[in-house]
Design a protein around this nucleic acid. Structure first.
Lengths: 129, 129
DNA sequence: CTTGACCTTCCAGTTACTGGAGGCCCTATC
DNA sequence: GATAGGGCCTCCAGTAACTGGAAGGTCAAG
């Protein structure tokens, strides 16, 4: 498989696949002409990475997860720790965003949104203190 | 006021304040020795920026909001549009994160987290298809 | 033989800062 | 007068994870 096929089958842009090679997540073989030649195993790794990334894991977490995935002697506790830490970060992020959303919703609702200059949103942002 | 005072009073790191000057959000005066000299108005702008950033507005949105803030002939509709667009992005982000969280929660709950290699998290990430 | 779709590498840009090096300014103390 | 400390200055580089684009090699079809 060339990079285009792998891109189609994994859903990852070719640019991203090259980037993953550059940072050492995958190591596809090369053809005589210099083209990357992907085996099924490479595709499988890329699919793994795509799903891990879609769950919001960082690249470094993906690297660790992939290493565990390929280690038959792993302890599931190590995997779980990574996932739980990530889950906590997501929960925190959701809480942050919800707070923003609540404030913004109030402000947007309070704003007339017409041609006049008076605006509760700007009043709030510019308040003293 | 020197940058240290403004940093203390606005809560923004000095580095960030310099950065905001560099990208043209503020233009503090300079003393004979080259030090930035901040007026109350500069501090007020920085506080505005800090609050807008805390609500998740991008720098460019902050720039637009600040321009509207200083324009007595603004239409509140322009402010509201920026805020509403941002609110929509936040809602979308929350939805994304919630989906991640739900999946991750399931996976983490299903994982024994012990010394054995068997792991539903990795099984899911490495599933075929 | 040429066209067009692939593929290659390398460089730069994105967001919003952050860290650090090297060096000036100012006040206080010895 | 020398020095120590803290604050300030600019400039450069790095962060995360790509993304876009330029310049150019490869390959199959017509």
């Amino acid at each position: 498989m060339n990079i285009g096929d792998v891109s189609d089958r994994s859903g990852l842009p070719a640019k991203t696949i090259r980037y993953y090679e550059e940072i050492g997540l995958i190591s596809p073989a090369r053809d005589h002409n210099g083209y990357r030649r992907f085996a099924e195993q490479d595709l499988h790794k890329l699919a793994f990475l795509a799903r891990a990334r879609a769950l919001g894991f960082t690249i470094e977490e993906c690297r660790a997860l992939l290493a565990l995935y390929e280690d038959d002697t792993r302890a599931s506790a190590d995997v779980k720790r990574i996932a739980r830490d990530h889950l906590r970060r997501i929960e925190a992020k959701i809480a942050d965003l919800r707070a923003m959303r609540d404030t913004l919703t109030e402000l947007v609702d309070a704003c007339a949104g017409d041609s006049r200059p008076d605006c509760p949103i700007l009043r709030d942002l510019g308040r003293e203190g």
